[in-house]
Amino acid sequence: MQDFILTAEILEKARNAIEGSLIQAGVRTALLIDGAGNILSNCGHDSDEIDAISLAALAAANLGATSQIAKLIGEEDFSLLFHKGKNGNIHFGRIGDELILITIFGEDVSLGLVRCRVTDLTDTLLHIFEG
């Protein structure tokens, strides 16, 4: 496994991409983490109010667990991982093999359009991290 060495430039680019796409579209918080639960980028309006460290660790474990569940039913992985709450929703998306993008948004934002944007953003972020 490779170590991540993040330069300020890469992080800034990633943050700009996330801000420009998701936060501008009304998403509350977007967290970019790695598979081990490290936080690479934390963007959004109430990003300070969320216990991001716990969220990242649980999200990484959650994705690991669901991908095991997927294998148990003969799937490679699930393409949609989403939890719906009363006022808040959370969507998890894989960025390549190593990274995870967590998106937290309210009732007024459509999951379908968040998914579209996350799909677009995935390519951009992969491009940024793979140079």
Binding site: M1, Q2, D3, I5, T7, L11, E12, D34, A36, N38
Partner: peptide
Amino acid sequence: MALIDLSKKEIHCKI
């Protein structure tokens, strides 16, 4: 995989 965030000058170690 240690995460070293040079922008925030943070070193994360996982034990």
